[in-house]
Every structure is written in C-alpha cells, then in structure tokens.
Design a protein around this nucleic acid. Sequence first.
DNA 1: TCCGTGACACAAG
DNA 2: CCTTGTGCCACGG
Length: 116
Amino acid sequence: MRDRRFDRAVYRLVSRIPPGRVATYGQIASLLGYPRAARAVGSALKRCPPDLPWQRILNHRGGISLRANVSGMITQRILLEREGVPLQRGRVDLARYCWAGPRRRPAVKLPALGKL
DNA sequence: TCCGTGACACAAG
DNA sequence: CCTTGTGCCACGG
C-alpha cells in the first residue's frame, strides 16, 4: 500500500474528460471497476495534482460537493462556466453535460454491417 | 497493522 | 426539499 494506485487511476481517468463535459464521483469509481468507491474518488481529488481538471467532477445530483469550502465552490463554478458548463439552481444538467466515458477504439475490426 | 477519516451514494422518514 | 443512518473503501497517521 502507500503507492496510491487507486488515486493515480482516478487522475488518469479524470484527465481524459474533455472540457465542457462532467462526470460524477460514482461514475469515475464505476469506470475504474470499483462501483462502490465513490467516496475514495473524492478523497483522491482532494489530493490531486494541480493540473488536473478536478472541476469536472460533481456529485450524483450534478452539484458541487466541496464541503464547507466556499472559495473552492466558487472556483469550481467559475471554471465550469468558463468551459461552457452552466449551473442552474446549483446544479449542472447531467443528462446534457455528462461525459460518456473513455472512448475505446475497437480492438478488432467489426464484421460488416451488411445492408443498411 | 489497525483505525479514523471523508470533494460519495442511496434509502427511509 | 431536507434530515438522518448505513454501507463503502483507499489513504494516511
């Protein structure tokens, strides 16, 4: 332990979220294969490297989860709006701005689709 | 190694 | 909508 594998996996994935899109803590955890480790994702972000687009991670309701950190909440909102993600009533419309997940190119060529 | 700690999620009241 | 209570799990001390 002490090598922070999980944290680094989180950073790797979060760094792939494009500007203008967001993801939830639970979504990141699930994509990493630990559907119940949403909380650990939050802990990881708390210690994340300065260049990580941490602002793109929201709670499952599309809200900002920085606890009692007023300046942090403001910062996150500014950063999101700056890249085109608006908050309304304190929430981002996840149905609209949620990231689809990492794009996996097909490992093998798919069979022909046939007529269409 | 054991134990407390959360930038969470979800269900119930 | 808001308020608990419970489950969870990697980290750090």
